[in-house]
Design a protein around this nucleic acid. Structure first.
Lengths: 144, 144
DNA sequence: GACTCCGTTTAGGCATACCTAAAACAAAAA
DNA sequence: TTTTTGTTTTAGGTATGCCTAAACGGAGTC
C-alpha cells in the first residue's frame, strides 16, 4: 500500500485545481499510469475510506483522506524545497512526490520543521491553485 | 527491482564484517526477511551478474555488484549523517538503508557532496569493520 | 430516439517480492 | 559410518500494482 500515498497526493493537488469529483483519467495523468491503474487504486482508496468514488464521474477525498493528503503535501513541499534550495536541483518535484509517502513520520516531521523554522512560515498553499502542469511549490513565505 | 539495492547493501556490509561468501541466512537477518526470500533475491542478483552464488555456501559481490554497492553505501552513509546531524534523529540507520536505493542518482550525489563538502573528508569506511548489529556510520572525518 | 465518441471500468494477465512448509544438504555427533 | 542437527533451497501460494484489450456509459449529434 505504499503507492496509495502517491494517488492521494495527486488527488489532493487536483482538487485544488478544479473542483471534485476528479475523474480517474486526470489522476492517471498526474501519477503517470494507465487510466485502468488509476481506477483500481481509487477503488482501493475507497475501500480504505480515504476517497469517495462516483462511478464514471470521479473521486473526492473524504475527511480522513484529506487529512492524510494534507500531511503528504506538507512533506512534498518540504522535499521540493530541500531539493531546490539545499541540493540546488531543479525539476525534482516529481521525485519529491514519489518520496513524500516513503518517509517515516519522524523524518517527514523534522524535514518540515527544518523548512518552517529556517524560512519563516512558508505558505504551504502557495501554487496549489496556480497554473502549470505540476504542482511546483515555490515556498514564498506569504501570499495574500 | 527496487529491492535489489537493499540486498546489495546488506551484502556489502556483511562482506566487511566477515569474509565472503556470505550465507543467505545472514543476509535475511540484515534485511529482515525470511531466509527463503533472501535466497530468491540472491539468485536474481546472480542472474543480473551482481553476485556470485555458491549453493549452500553463500554469496559474494562481483565487480559490478561491488561498484553498485559501494555507491549505495555512500548514499546510505550520507543519509545516516543527514538524519542524525541535520534532522537530529537517532536510530534511523534502517530507514537510511531502505532509502539509499530509492534516491535518484542526482539527489544521492548532491547529498553525498553536501556531507563531504561540509564536513571535511568523512571516512566512509568508518565502522564498516566495527562491531555491532547494524552498520552505524559515525562519519568521523578520518580514521587511520 | 438512435448513434457516435470519448472517457471509464472490467477482465484477464503478468512481474515483483514476499511467506510457510517441505525437501535437500553439509557438517558434526554418536 | 550412520544419524542428528541446523541451515539452505525448492515448491506452492499470496498481495500489490501495473498493463492491454474489450465492454460499458454518458453526453452531445443527427
Amino acid at each position: 500500500m505504499t503507492r496509495t500515498a502517491r494517488y492521494l497526493l495527486a488527488l489532493y493537488i487536483a482538487e485544488h485545481r478544479s473542483s471534485p469529483p476528479i475523474p480517474s483519467g486526470r489522476i492517471a495523468e498526474l501519477v503517470d499510469r494507465s487510466p485502468a491503474a488509476a481506477t483500481e487504486m481509487l477503488q482501493r482508496l475507497e475501500t480504505d475510506g480515504l476517497v469517495d468514488l462516483e462511478a464514471y464521474r470521479g473521486a473526492t477525498l473524504t475527511d480522513d483522506g484529506l487529512e492524510r493528503a494534507a500531511d503528504l503535501h506538507g512533506t512534498y513541499v518540504a522535499l521540493s524545497w530541500f531539493f531546490r534550495d539545499v541540493l540546488d536541483l531543479d525539476a525534482h518535484e516529481h521525485e519529491a512526490m514519489e518520496m513524500a509517502g516513503l518517509l517515516s513520520a519522524e523524518v517527514a516531521d523534522r524535514l518540515v520543521h527544518l523548512l518552517v523554522d529556517g524560512n519563516g512560515r512558508p505558505d504551504v498553499d502557495a501554487r496549489l491553485d496556480a497554473d502549470g502542469p505540476l504542482d511546483l511549490p515555490t515556498l514564498s513565505t506569504s501570499r495574500e
